[in-house]
């Protein structure tokens, strides 16, 4: 589904990613772990199409297409979704409007009819239950006045409604207390499917207790230093990131 080859990315002239390789197939759940400043968020932002990253070489192929040539909205239409580390507050834009516009733009792109308001609302209400999101949030402005945990829940709720093929969860666990983490992780688990890939970017092993990954990668110094199964995360937790560097 996603193939990243020898990706080099700079920000303001500073090299962040230095020849990263990664292959992700449908149905897989990957965890990317690594110390601060290793380039984890750069990777997710580059995949989602945020401005401000200079791609100096390498390629990112998504379902056979050149992902880097697509605008952020085209990527969304093609099924790429980023759950933001810091979800943005947008006063005055209603949560439900946003999702309806997003879903219908995607359907239009796929040559499908737009959902009518009634069908859309029944989908939305059902998905809100996945992350135990209070229905009153649906009529509020996007993330405005939401607590940290509510914002993260709202991200996973949006993921559920938009039904992406490739979901990137950028530090979705940060700022969550243990109950919220359990709810959010439960929502993600319900969204696992054979035709969907999920990539979790996280500092901590804790999230992986709830969402079990098929692969764990260590991202440090701008490349994937090591890849393993979930036991790698436990070793990291025990020995720290320096241990990976030493063992190489």
């Amino acid at each position: 589904m996603l193939e990243i080859k020898d990706l080099h990315v700079s920000v303001d002239g500073k090299k962040i990613l230095k020849g990263l390789n990664l292959t992700i197939n449908a149905g897989e759940v990957h965890a990317i772990m690594g110390p601060n400043g290793a380039g984890k968020s750069t990777l997710s932002n580059v995949i989602a199409g945020r401005d401000g990253y200079e791609i100096t070489s390498g390629s990112v192929t998504y379902k056979g297409d050149d992902l880097l040539a697509m605008s952020p909205e085209e990527r969304a239409w093609a099924g790429v979704f980023l759950a933001f580390q810091y979800p943005v507050e947008i006063p005055g834009v209603n949560n439900t409007y946003l999702l309806k516009a997003g879903v219908n733009a995607k359907r239009k792109h796929q040559g499908l009819d737009e959902l009518d308001a009634f069908d859309f609302m029944s989908v939305v209400k059902e998905k809100a239950k996945l992350v135990e999101l209070d229905p009153s949030f649906l009529s509020r402005s996007v993330n405005e006045g939401f607590s940290g945990g509510e914002k993260k829940r709202n991200e996973i709720f949006q993921m559920a409604v938009l039904e992406p093929s490739l979901a990137l969860l950028d530090e979705t666990d940060s700022g969550l207390d243990i109950d919220a983490l359990r709810i959010v992780a439960g929502g993600v688990n319900k969204l696992r499917s054979a035709d969907r890939a999920i990539v979790m970017i996280t500092h901590y092993q804790r999230l992986l207790d709830y969402i079990e990954p098929d692969f764990v990668h260590v991202l440090a110094n701008g490349i994937i230093l090591k890849t393993g199964d979930k036991s790698l995360a436990l070793e990291l937790e025990e020995h720290g990131y320096d241990w990976v560097k030493e063992t190489l």
Partner: peptide, 24 residues
Amino acid sequence: DQQLFYLRSRGISEAAAQELLTFA
């Protein structure tokens, strides 16, 4: 810019996202 990117990442075209933010 952050609000614009957020809306676009949800599938709203750039022009529509600008309008939506302006209107809001």
